[in-house]
């Protein structure tokens, strides 16, 4: 075909931008990456050193607290199953990365969601970014993560945060916007400052919705952490990844089931937390 319009060199631009950013920032990001990855490794080793029954019991207790004995027994059986499959250590690695990514997502996403809810202009900027972050194939984030953070768990967490954060932002904003106008009006009528209104009325009432967002973020983190095995993140993802490379269907399936079990346990527990936040 004879093109009369020249092609927009989007790929070249992206490369140029990335090169420039890498050059400008990689010194800093690499340093951060080193310390964070050391930290992750230490935490993982520490948790792996704890006897599994203790962790199983701890989850059982947590589940019992937020829900009841049903969920408690279910969680403990699930973890025992993973232990039995000899997948305990990879599971702990994955869990640590999910927890860290989720924590980072909340730390960034929650304030961003609040600002987006209170300020229409911020929302107009944030919304398309989130749409892009969620619809872009998640593998794409893995590529630029490497020059900044190198191969390993930090790059995995970085990509995971970008992929998993939008639900927290979106549902935080939604939760705040859904607070009935009557109640914010009542708060105004009693002379609240913006901060008082936020802390005493809007956030408590938005909490169930925010918790639902965090639940989504955890689920997305888990799915992304598995994909991130491709750039050197360990854990259950690596089990799947090496099974694919060696065409070991059984081992792949086993790791897949382990991920599903972990996902279900995390989901049920956070869902219960979200339900408990519901005002009566």
């Amino acid at each position: 075909m004879n093109w009369s319009v020249p092609r927009i060199p989007l790929d070249t631009w992206c490369d140029a931008a990335l090169d420039w950013l890498t050059e400008a920032l990689s010194g800093v990001t690499r340093a951060i990456s080193h310390s964070v990855s050391d930290w992750i490794a230490e935490l993982t080793t520490l948790l792996q050193a704890v006897p599994p029954p203790m962790i199983i019991l701890a989850f059982g207790l947590l589940a019992w607290r937020v829900s009841g004995w049903r969920l408690s027994i279910g969680s403990m059986l699930g973890f025992a199953f993973l232990w039995n499959l000899r997948l305990w250590d990879p599971m702990v690695t994955t869990l640590v990365m999910v927890v860290l990514s989720t924590a980072a997502s909340i730390a960034i996403g929650l304030p961003l969601g609040i600002v987006a809810a209170l300020n229409a202009r911020t929302w107009r900027v944030v919304a398309p970014c989130m749409d892009m972050a969620q619809t872009m194939p998640s593998f794409v984030y893995l590529i630029p993560a490497i020059p900044f953070f190198g191969l390993g768990p930090v790059s995995a967490c970085f990509a995971t945060v970008i992929f998993a954060m939008p639900p927290t932002i979106r549902l935080t904003a939604l939760g705040i916007l859904q607070v009935p106008g009557e109640l914010t009006e009542a708060a105004d009528a009693f002379g609240t400052t913006r901060w008082q209104k936020l802390v005493k009325v809007q956030l408590p009432l938005a909490l169930p919705t925010i918790m639902a967002g965090i639940n989504q973020t955890i689920m997305l983190s888990l799915s992304m952490v598995v994909i991130a095995a491709m750039i050197g993140a360990g854990g259950l993802g690596r089990e799947v990844w090496s099974a694919i490379q060696r065409l070991e269907a059984g081992r792949g399936f086993q790791a897949g089931v382990a991920i599903a079990v972990l996902a279900i346990i995390l989901d049920r527990i956070t869902q219960q937390v979200s339900r408990r936040a519901q005002p009566r």
């Binding site: 009693f190 002379g191 609240t192 400052t193």
Partner: peptide
């Protein structure tokens, strides 16, 4: 704000109690 705090009390049609 100060004025609203000290000079007015307001009652709403649908109660507007904080659940």
């Amino acid at each position: 704000r100060d004025f609203r705090r000290h000079s007015f009390g307001m009652v709403f049609q649908h109660f507007a109690l904080f659940p």
